[in-house]
Design a protein around this nucleic acid. Structure first.
Lengths: 207, 207, 207, 207
DNA sequence: AATGAATGAGTTTTCATTCAT
DNA sequence: AATGAATGAAAACTCATTCAT
């Protein structure tokens, strides 16, 4: 009655939103623990406590959940990244800002991640391949390519460089969240230094 | 150990060896095309032309094939790497040699599957991870960590650095094999320069 | 009996009647399009725009809807048929009247669904059987059996003859509604001539 | 060894053929008892005593079984029908031969048919709608249309007539097999007389 | 009464593995 | 050993029905 209903806020709508999120959260965990391919829809729904059929009220398949997870990740990280690009005066400060933003995001996210994976399993080195990280990577990659194109690092092969920067951030980030305490600053220092030094050493022959 | 393959090579034995290899080859292809988790034993055996039951005369499961493939990869690559490390006078030449060896292996390996993949299938799919590549990676990583530990790059965090080097090689390698023509020299130049420059820029505060 | 529909017609009641009818109409369509067995309660209710749960305020199951639809058909057709039998002086005029009544009903009924059916779907599917058609058939059959029993066609096996007449009417009727324009007169002429001629040719040995 | 193997006759092949036929037989029964739409793959496979998965070694779906059943029916009846058409001098003897062939087939087939259907079910009058009968009907229809086209019954609407003849045969046939003893001759006499007389009475205005 | 999400039993389908041949 | 059909446990998915709002 006195609801200032910008959004539907009935109990039903609330439950719906909660369930949708619960499935997403469960999927995030299960993808992390078992890997996208290995896990089943049942694994996901079991963790939510919802009934099997309820999954299909929200998503049509495991893949659709994956996409939704990507979207969510992108939706959360992209604004951060965009802000950094706007603020950063030069390439170096952008790199640092981006890396720190990403590491912050990672530290925030990693809760259930990569930790409890059964170590005896011959998992094909699926490092941090999470849907959300995929989305984030795309953002970062685009930013880097653009930066390069703008002349920041003259002559360097933009595709190779973007791939390399992302790879470094990903792998060092994974190491970072595995350590205690999680040291964002230290890891970022390392990565930024490596990238900056590396870019300087690059052959000046573009693509 | 001193087995120099003076193994029985009667007709029976030959077939056995051939079948074992055929399964391995088929698995390599299928892992590449569908991914380890997504593919089935039937996918593998179908490609060999053998009967379903025959698979189990050679391997107990898909996982066992994975391990066998990893072993094969390691067996092929380790000697190369060891030789490089023995020959290389300094860190730089070792890095170059290792990278080139790895890229050569990659280019060799990827003749087949990168092309074949149906491009209209954007399924979430762990990118081209073959057990053999994983094995090679592990070898390289071990070598780098060892090199670093031995003082090659004073003060740098060895774990981070190894992770970063591996990551760079992997990602740039993947880009490399996606281009035509495959330019091992160019890619290796890029990676080596990036790593060398990066190492120089590193903070001197080890773990 | 003497219910001349002096029923409550308040707003509430009207909606109830409307909904009940809407479900019936939707079911008629869906039964025609998908077949009784193949269609689901959701298929029916979806077409009404009502909520899933509302279905159960009116009918307890798909089967109950089927029965209701049959009743409706019978209720509509029986009076017509009775009137024809009362008016018709002889067997021939009764047959003609009954056939024309049935064909009229058919043409009326099939406005909707025969057209809509996707023609690329050759699924094994019981041909256009609507509960209302079934009800009409039962009425006609009963009338014919009665007529035969009364001596209209001396000696003919009444059961066989009723079955045959019904069958002819049904199949030719189906053909008729599939043609454009729908020619009730022509089809009725054909059927009546066939039946009249056929009856004349029948062996005079009843059951 | 001394197998004069025109066909594979190993125990395996034999079992395969038997299983395939067992599934077909089970499906025939189940289609008859529950109707095509209502019955499930499980209903079919349960009756064979085979495992659930085994069904899919032979057929991909219920529909495929349906088609196979149709094929089987057509394969058995068509030669009979063709022979009759070749032998029959005129339209009348062809009709009689065809009807008798069909009724013979029906009497042969009906074993499990139409009998045990639960009578309380509001089955949409799926009279003899068996896949095999569908196949047979198609054959008959084709023969009749051809006969008509050839001038046998000048001017009659071939489509209507074919539909009517088939309908008569179907319905009377159904009645016939429901009686004891099954009197093929009597039923055929009735049908032939009806058709012959009916054709004579037909208006001479063709399509 | 209407709503529509949740439920969970039931169905289809897949696939690793076994085992008779 | 090789074969390949049978198995059946488990996964994906559907849908009639309930019930809190």
């Amino acid at each position: 009655m006195s609801q200032v209903a910008y959004l539907p806020v009935g109990k039903r709508e609330q439950t719906k939103v909660q369930n949708r999120q619960a499935i997403l959260d469960a999927a995030r965990e299960v993808f992390g623990e078992l890997g996208y391919e290995a896990c089943t829809v049942r694994d996901i729904i079991r963790r939510t406590g919802l009934a099997a059929g309820t999954f299909y009220n929200y998503y049509r398949s495991k893949e659709e959940v994956y996409v939704a997870l990507s979207d969510e990740g992108a939706r959360r990280f992209t604004p951060l990244l965009k802000a950094q690009r706007a603020q950063s005066a030069d390439w170096e400060s952008f790199v640092r800002a981006a890396i720190e933003a990403y590491f912050g995001f990672l530290a925030d996210e990693h809760k259930s991640w990569l930790a409890r994976r059964p170590p005896d399993e011959p998992h094909p080195h699926v490092h941090g391949e999470t849907p959300e990280m995929a989305a984030v990577f795309n953002e970062v990659r685009e930013a880097i390519v653009e930066e390069i194109a703008r002349g920041g690092t003259p002559g360097a092969d933009p595709d190779y460089l973007a791939a390399a920067c992302i790879a470094i951030a990903r792998e060092v980030g994974e190491k970072m969240v595995a350590r205690r305490p999680i040291d964002i600053k230290g890891a970022a220092d390392f990565v930024v230094a490596l990238i900056q030094g590396g870019v300087k050493g690059l052959p000046k022959t573009g693509v």
